[in-house]
Computed example of a mutant assay.
Amino acid sequence: MGVFNNARRGPRTGGDVVRSRIASTAGGTDPYVFSYRHVEVHAYVLSQPVHHVLYCTYGKSRVDSSQPSAGTQTELTLRLPGSPALPEQWPADLLARAAREEIEPGHYLCLDTPRGTLTGFVFVTDPVLGVVDGPTGLIRFTYAVGLAGDDLERMLSWDPAKFAELACNRVPLGITSTRREPLSADPRDRAYLDRVVGAEGASIGAMHARYLDVDASGRVDLDPAAARAVIRAARHRLLHGRTFALLNGDTWLLFDPESPTTDLADDHIVVASPEALAHELLAVFDAAPGAYRLQSAPLKLRVLDPST
């Protein structure tokens, strides 16, 4: 009879494994389903270990397949506090958009517009759902941990994985809130972060720029967020003797403390970056729109607002 039932249902799929894994923590709770063009997001209102809503994508991994696949697949998760009669839609919208990208633990997401105190997310392996092995291969539940206030800036100045570990140790289950204070609001955590950031510097060696254009004259056009990344890198990468790059398609800008010369081309620039250049960037460069000419490198940095 068991063989007959299995033949009637067909082979076990990746979706069976995803649903079974969530059921192991959600019990018999039925999900609210948010449907999008390329993925669903299921929301479960749970009471254990604290009252919260678990959001999980369904369809980023191979949920309709029973065939093995190389590599580790992903479903994205997020948790909000409370027990609402109806789960809010914005976390589902956010996960559905994020599901279009290849996201792994250690990656992060910056919100263009903060939601309350929420300014972004850092991703870790879900502390409850973890990684499961199914007919299609390994499936990781990759968890979005909310960042509040200056959490995002402090994380980018240090190390996303290490910051995520600290945040999850301070916030039960790493639950996201739009009202949480940043970790730096606690004097002990602020002192700890100041110390480790100063000692270790930043682990992020490259960032995608929304807008970046260069040419062989030394002109560099970039958006304000990319300019902030350069300033951050000057303090937390270049002064530690580490490289930093901005990328946009085939165009790139590399600051290299070990390069003896600056290389200028119409699609890339490599900037010799001794301490003097880092200090000049920190002294004269700004993320406000405008033009900034450097003395320690043949560069003219123009910060532009691409929306205007």
Rank of each mutant, 00 (worst) to 15 (best):
H38D: 14
D221K: 09
L109D: 11
S66M: 10
Y55D: 00
D266R: 00
G218L: 09
V145T: 10
G27K: 11
R180P: 03
D221R: 12
S35Y: 05
V220N: 10
L193E: 04
R62K: 15
R242Q: 13
G28V: 05
G249P: 09
W158P: 04
V303S: 11
T57D: 07
I204Y: 01
R100G: 14
R190M: 13
L254I: 09
H38Q: 12
H236Q: 10
T117Q: 10
E200T: 12
E104T: 13
D112H: 14
R237G: 03
V18A: 03
Q295M: 11
A216W: 04
D151Y: 02
A233M: 03
R232K: 09
V3K: 08
L109N: 08
V33I: 11
G106S: 14
T13D: 05
G249R: 08
R140F: 03
D16P: 01
D256W: 06
A148L: 11
A265I: 11
H240P: 06
A265P: 07
S35P: 05
L294W: 07
R97L: 12
Q295S: 15
D150F: 07
D215H: 08
R237L: 05
T176A: 05
L277Y: 04
N5V: 08
W90F: 15
D215Q: 03
A227N: 05
G290L: 10
I269R: 04
R62H: 15
D263I: 13
R62A: 15
Y44E: 11
S65N: 04
T142R: 02
T13N: 08
G130L: 09
S217P: 02
T308W: 14
R154H: 13
L246M: 07
G198Y: 06
L46P: 00
E181P: 13
R140N: 13
V145K: 00
D159I: 01
A283R: 14
A148F: 07
R19M: 09
T251V: 14
F34R: 01
H52M: 04
R37N: 11
G27T: 08
A227H: 01
D215L: 08
S20Y: 05
T74C: 06
I204A: 08
T125P: 03
H51P: 12
G134H: 01
E75H: 02
V39F: 00
V145Y: 05
G14R: 03
P68D: 10
Y44A: 09
E88V: 08
S217Y: 02
G28Y: 08
P289Y: 04
V124F: 12
R97G: 14
A202S: 15
L281V: 12
E75F: 00
